[in-house]
Simulated assay, not measured.
Amino acid sequence: MKIVSYRRHGADGFGVVVEGSAETGLAVDATTMDPAIRSVLDLLRADAVPQLARWVEGRDADVDLAAVALRPPIIGSRKVLCAGVNYAPHRDEADLRQAENPTIFTRFADTHVAHGAPLILPSVAKNLDFEGELLAVIGRNVWRETPEQANDAVVAWSCYNDGSVRDWQFHTNQWTAGKNFLGTGGFGPWLVTADEVGPVDKLELTTRLNDEIVQQASVSDLIFSVPELVSYVSQFTPLGPGDLLLTGTPGGVGAFREPPLWLSAGDVVTVDITGVGQLRNDVAAEGGDQGR
């Protein structure tokens, strides 16, 4: 089941995609299912994904995605946690040794931009980089679980572009600034429920810059698996429905190319994950519509 968030007629809504692409598809508006559930975050916190799957069966599409403005699939996540250098080729190009534990940093939820909205090139920075990633959506409370216990904690998946402002990221050895500029986190186009995706180690991730492949890897190449990441994070902070976990980017990022490959206004970046979807964002100089 593909769950999409959008704005139409001045109001936010969400629905289930039943046909076509994010640009031209059709969806069933789900805001009429339950008056207490007005968003995807409400849906997850109510543990109502199974209810939605039953409710949507046999219903006719009533939302034309070409006529709405897509939003990031989840608005207002409490926690957005990210795994760094979690593919061996990316670790090697960054000239880092294998860590004993995952490298975890945070993103702010207000940095997300939707599929089709621009990534923003900040006026105070120069080196905006791309990082295609698989995003995991937590579906239940998780606290100090083993990887085996955490194996069913993910309710859905999405595509993410962890746009990184490298000149600010490398001001210090703490990455917070470079990872949290407004409008730098592409997220979408939708969530795909875990039951539809199946085993993530079968997924292939491809990032393209202006139609040229710049990153390509199997998700099976993750150094720390998704259950291991969820387990590790849950040792220091409780996770709950609607929290997000970025699982890491493959090798090929712009920062470690020779010469470096930075994003410029007018570029188009796509993150394509088999079985999940294709996220597309162009790049715009600060001052335009940030799509939030």
Results as ranks from 00 to 15, higher is better:
residue 228 E to Y: 09
residue 137 V to W: 04
residue 177 A to H: 15
residue 125 A to L: 06
residue 216 Q to P: 08
residue 16 V to M: 07
residue 157 W to E: 00
residue 115 H to W: 05
residue 111 T to S: 02
residue 104 I to N: 07
residue 2 K to W: 00
residue 108 F to N: 09
residue 218 S to D: 04
residue 292 R to M: 06
residue 264 S to K: 09
residue 81 L to K: 08
residue 128 L to V: 08
residue 161 N to A: 06
residue 57 E to T: 03
residue 223 I to M: 10
residue 47 D to L: 13
residue 168 W to A: 11
residue 118 P to Q: 00
residue 145 E to F: 11
residue 236 F to N: 02
residue 205 L to K: 11
residue 219 V to L: 14
residue 41 L to E: 09
residue 86 N to E: 07
residue 25 G to W: 01
residue 194 A to K: 04
residue 136 A to N: 10
residue 249 T to I: 08
residue 125 A to P: 11
residue 112 H to C: 12
residue 107 R to V: 04
residue 255 A to D: 02
residue 24 T to S: 10
residue 165 V to T: 07
residue 125 A to I: 07
residue 58 G to C: 00
residue 103 T to P: 12
residue 228 E to I: 15
residue 65 L to Y: 03
residue 233 V to W: 09
residue 273 I to D: 04
residue 3 I to E: 06
residue 134 L to Y: 10
residue 74 I to H: 01
residue 235 Q to A: 03
residue 175 W to T: 10
residue 159 C to L: 00
residue 5 S to T: 13
residue 117 A to R: 04
residue 219 V to Q: 15
residue 189 P to A: 00
residue 190 W to V: 03
residue 45 R to H: 15
residue 286 E to A: 13
residue 171 H to N: 15
residue 49 V to E: 03
residue 86 N to V: 10
residue 291 G to W: 01
residue 20 G to N: 02
residue 190 W to M: 01
residue 20 G to Y: 02
residue 210 N to K: 05
residue 172 T to H: 13
residue 137 V to I: 12
residue 253 V to T: 09
residue 287 G to E: 13
residue 256 F to R: 12
residue 195 D to V: 07
residue 245 L to S: 12
residue 270 T to A: 11
residue 189 P to H: 02
residue 104 I to F: 08
residue 159 C to W: 00
residue 212 E to T: 09
residue 50 P to A: 01
residue 164 S to T: 06
residue 55 W to T: 03
residue 97 R to W: 13
residue 250 P to I: 04
residue 144 R to I: 03
residue 214 V to L: 00
residue 142 V to L: 10
residue 30 A to F: 14
